[in-house]
Design a protein around this nucleic acid. Structure first.
Lengths: 340, 340
DNA sequence: GCAGATACAACAATCGATTGCAATACCCTT
DNA sequence: AAGGGTATTGCAATCGATTGTTGTATCTGC
């Protein structure tokens, strides 16, 4: 601290430091990068000088020159949601793991600006020149846009469903299989009047619904009814409340599109005195850490977020290195707890 | 799409586009910025050309030149936590709101790399030249470091407690008052054997504990016992489990340092057949959206995260503009629900 | 003592934009 | 037709680094 205060001038760039040290900028640059090309003594002298003045080279300039930003963009497509639901717990959970992995590898994370009304939002992000790669969390209803960009932009990996023939690289679970597992769990518990709680616009959610339908069909049950619910957590509560009467009358088993929805549903049912799982069974999806801490604990489908995040990053790194890594589809797993 | 495919060459910079348009780079730059200085016809011609080739100017270069990055760093100091708990729901909740506000104002967000073992982590972030400003979520045990940097770096705002005489600008609630409110709530419910669940290393959490002590003292009760708990969600469960016996024996009212801790506590108590609030009262802190959806609903202290996030961003913008905005301390509010 | 190798540092081009200033062309006025 | 003004555009410096090439001592060996 004392030396920080005693220094009269802050050094703003490598040139000033060079003048101070009586050498050229090139030498300073190499010295700070600790290259053996410069004499050990001068190198250490320059480094000491830099430390003393608290100087650190401007990263913007360095990255422009080196053409490598060490920044990865992480984006949630918000195509079909007006409200930005960045606070969605699933996004946050996976973001946490992505942050861990990327940080370990020396990358920073940029949550890029998304302008949902412009249809070139992804191009804008990808083309900004600020990013070495892009990770998308969820496909939303932006499948076409993602495909279009994937035609020419390689370092991009998407969390979501894999459709045969698609160009873009996805990592995710077999959502249809997950939906089926949830359905079978309910059916095995004797439930016959099933419903899907969520919205089936995004491919990954539609797949879950389809899986549920598979399970119902296999058991000779009618197609489960579909109850639309926004994913933004503040409107979700109302949406679910609006469905409650119908659920009370027509449903005895609910497959929710996410853990958050399941939590809200259990809560809303409790408000009406409907008990879970005695009166109605409920399943979640995602297996967030939260799912284990609720009362009652959520029965849910595990997406193993940590593994998924790691897979996304690995695939991305391969793509940054030039390899066209393939999509990864993981097996979902039923986590049986208290709600079904 | 057809025209995207028909173009043989991708344009990589403004110079190529200039050659293609038969003008100088300066003109292209001005045309793309839609400056009236260039002829309307050429301007539109250039813009059309750019659109056709899907060209967008390199942001890294632009930002280096204009010395304005339009990027704000958002950082959680992890000083006293080994595990990175980026998935902490409070952080995520406030991050969501920050993202909304910053995005509306044309800023991007960078989750900067934090190397907890190096003591110049903040200098490194602040000095990278990549950021127009920095927002810190929580002070952790890094008060000194933050102060040191605040001496010379203005565009920084911190979520946390305000200590008299500090240099850095904070936004937060009166944590001591919040702790007192929670304590008074329990005392009013007839609880006499109080405990604080959390860790009192970070100033904001210590303040909450002190407030609880105030309330106890005012009611003539002994000082509440302090039960340490990590904030990282995966070890938290074990930590709490380890305290359960002692709680069972010695405690009838718990003030938790956060909603997440409260949730875990309620869950752990339920595992032992201890009912909340019949046997033990529990309060949370933060009033996360989740607190309203749990069973039973959490009684908690509201931090009004949305308002706080907006205040942080506003203070930051003032500081970027050159004004030395003052700290903001908001009034906490008791939200009475089911657990106390 | 000299050729050749080695070590070190300076020079200058480069990354891809922005922008103040200079230059040109054209129009209008008298 | 000359002079002054305006509308456009080009030129070149600049932001702050990195890095290939060149230049100059110094050293080694014979």
């Amino acid at each position: 601290m004392p030396d920080t205060l005693s220094t009269p001038t802050r050094i703003r760039n490598i040139a000033e430091l060079a003048r101070l040290a009586g050498v050229s900028t090139g030498t300073v640059s190499r010295a700070l990068a600790d290259k053996s090309l410069v004499n050990k003594d001068t190198r250490e002298r320059i480094q000491a000088l830099a430390r003393e003045h608290g100087f650190r080279p401007n990263q913007m300039a360095r990255r422009l020159r080196v053409q490598e930003t060490k920044v990865i963009g992480v984006v949630v497509p918000l195509g079909h949601e007006q409200r930005q639901h960045l606070s969605d717990p699933f996004f946050m959970a996976i973001l946490g793991h992505l942050a861990d992995t990327l940080t370990e590898n020396g990358y920073d994370i940029m949550l890029s600006r998304v302008i949902p009304d412009a249809d070139d939002w992804l191009e804008r992000i990808v083309d900004s020149g600020m990013l070495d790669g892009v990770l998308l969390i969820g496909q939303s209803n932006q499948f076409e846009t993602i495909e279009r960009v994937a035609q020419w932009y390689r370092p991009m990996v998407v969390w979501g469903s894999h459709r045969p023939g698609q160009t873009h690289c996805t990592v995710g679970v077999d959502n249809r299989q997950g939906g089926r597992l949830a359905g079978e769990c309910l059916i095995k518990a004797g439930r016959k009047r099933l419903a899907f709680l969520g919205e089936a616009i995004a491919p990954e959610l539609k797949d879950r619904y389809d899986g549920l339908c598979d399970a119902a069909a296999a058991a000779g049950l009618p197609a489960p009814i579909k109850l639309d619910t926004h994913l933004a957590s503040d409107v979700m509560a109302e949406d679910i409340a609006a469905h409650i009467e119908r659920i009370h009358a027509e449903v005895d088993g609910i497959v929710s599109a996410s853990d958050l929805i399941a939590m809200h549903a259990v809560r809303a049912l409790a408000d009406r005195g409907i008990r879970v799982p005695e009166d109605i069974s409920v399943t979640g999806f995602d297996d967030l850490p939260l799912a284990e801490q609720t009362i009652p604990r959520l029965t849910t489908i595990s997406q193993s977020i940590a593994v998924g995040a790691r897979a996304m990053v690995q695939a991305l790194f391969e793509r940054i290195a030039g390899t066209d890594s393939a999509s990864v589809e993981m097996e979902p797993k039923l986590i049986r707890r208290d709600t079904a």
